[in-house]
Amino acid sequence: MTRGLLIALWGWLLVWSVLSRRLDLLLRGVFHGLVGVSGVALIVVGIAVMTRNIKQREPVPWPWLAGGLMAILVLLLPPNPSFSDLAATRPQGLPEPLELAFVLPPEQRTLTEWVRLLRSQPDPDLVDGNPVNISGFVLKLGESPAQIARLTVRCCLADATPAGLPVAWPKDMEPKVNQWLAIEGRMRVESRDGQRVAVVVPETIQPIERPLRPLEP
């Protein structure tokens, strides 16, 4: 009976993660259905085990109980991951884009599209003066200046890759690591470490809540 209950609890945890959109912090949206179906399957198995052993009182091994406790904690405590810490330990290579984003109006390009464009076409003068309208979290890698960044995933957090853009932060602003910001401004070409780079020059910076889907494909 208890084993069935614990299996059903894990099933509910999976279903709840999909319904409450917590899974958006871990996994790309296209895989959520698979997780939901697995959750329902676990609930069905749990109910089947419970009905079969409804009158039996068997001893439950401690790892099962620890697992159940873990499931309850995951249900009760909302996750609050540090994307900045994660990004600092991830490789920097972005997957190649399917299509170059020059055709998109610059103000419609997402932060990831900007980074992909600038990596495939590293000539910053081509985008000098283009309007920028992006959102992301503040990422600081070592001693280098803070960037505005997003994590891109093919599947889930395990393969997350940071995509960041340098920002000419206003002098009176100290960007807080992990803070989510929406930035409107323009691209400007600056010389940094002897290299011409495209830098976001903000006209407005708005603190925002972490988006429901913080990971980008």
Partner: peptide, 26 residues
């Protein structure tokens, strides 16, 4: 065709439209 690829400039009766070659839903 747009020089950098990926898009087209299509003249229409009321102006010029810029569209991607592969429809991206935008």
């Amino acid at each position: 065709l747009l020089p950098s690829g990926g898009g087209l400039v299509v003249p229409t009766f009321d102006g010029l439209s810029l569209r991607p070659i592969i429809d991206n839903g935008r």
